[in-house]
């Protein structure tokens, strides 16, 4: 039988690995102490060291946290068109670029797409979205800087309905979860355009704050699925664990660069193997 003493050292080591890879402190705390409880007293299989035993158990625990992922194409096939996707998240997380990539991905998979340029606030936002849309060959609906974002996105949805477009990708200005007025604006956008999917975007390189903002966005406007960007920045994706552990919503895509092809459907096993090694 495994005693607390047998597993303490390997657990400490794994705890360190998680922390060094940006799994948020509190998430690590809960995951590790939960594991400890469930492992102590278990029968160790012949020829498995307690170290391996702990590692396997952690892998399983993390896989469970991460869940299955979210297949966008499957969702679209099963639902009435247009499928409306609202992208939310904090400043600079990668929403606009992700929308361009997803538009490209959907087009390549045979769907028609329209983009709603819902960031009417940030300097250069319209130009950024327009250039991206032009390059991936997708129609974009935009109003002037300072216009009501709900109105732009409503127009994008109307356009999609009038032209039998399969998918509406709705961009929003970046905002922090602690700004009540901006979160209310987002809630209004949600009411007006009635998205089928709210996709929350954050960066794979975010640290502990990832947990707080994921939770606040989820509380304020709801989140159906998550996109993690900037996974190419030499990171092992601990934020994926922090976020799914907190809001229990599946991850849809990873952003792995700034090219239009740099978006990959999420594979939980890959993240776990990168974190803990593929040898077990």
């Amino acid at each position: 039988l495994l005693s607390e003493k047998d597993i303490q050292e390997p657990l400490d080591e794994l705890e360190m690995i998680l922390l060094e890879n940006d799994v948020a402190f509190d998430a690590v705390d809960t995951i590790i102490s939960h594991m400890k409880k469930s492992i102590v007293g278990q029968k160790r299989k012949l020829r498995t060291s307690s170290e391996d035993f702990v590692k396997i158990a952690l892998k399983e625990a993390l896989m469970e946290v991460l869940g299955e992922g979210f297949s966008l194409t499957e969702y679209i096939n099963l639902h009435e068109k247009p499928v409306k996707i609202l992208f939310t998240g904090v400043n600079g997380a990668g929403k606009t670029t992700t929308i361009a990539k997803v538009a490209h991905y959907l087009k390549n998979n045979g769907y028609s797409v329209v983009i709603g340029s819902g960031d009417t606030f940030r300097a250069g936002a319209n130009e950024q979205m327009k250039t991206h849309a032009e390059r991936v060959g997708v129609k974009v609906i935009n109003h002037q800087e300072g216009a009501d974002p709900s109105a732009v996105l409503f127009d994008a949805v109307s356009y999609a309905k009038a032209h039998n477009i399969d998918v509406v990708l709705a961009d929003t200005a970046g905002r922090f979860h602690n700004r009540a007025n901006l979160m209310n604006q987002l809630e209004k956008i949600r009411r007006v355009m009635k998205p089928d999917i709210v996709a929350y975007v954050d960066e794979a390189v975010a640290g502990n704050d990832a947990v707080i903002r994921a939770e606040e966005f989820n509380n304020a406007v709801g989140t159906d699925t998550v996109v993690l960007t900037k996974a190419d920045m030499d990171t092992k994706g601990g934020a994926a664990i922090s976020i799914t552990h907190t809001i229990k919503k599946p991850i849809m895509f990873l952003g792995v660069g700034q090219g239009y092809d740099d978006v990959i459907p999420f594979e939980p096993e890959k993240i776990v193997n990168e974190l803990l090694g593929a040898d077990i």
Binding site: L19, N21, D22, A210, T235, A239
Partner: peptide, 8 residues
């Protein structure tokens, strides 16, 4: 540097 940047 973004205040939220983690271990990277």
């Amino acid at each position: 540097i973004d205040a939220a940047l983690g271990q990277q």
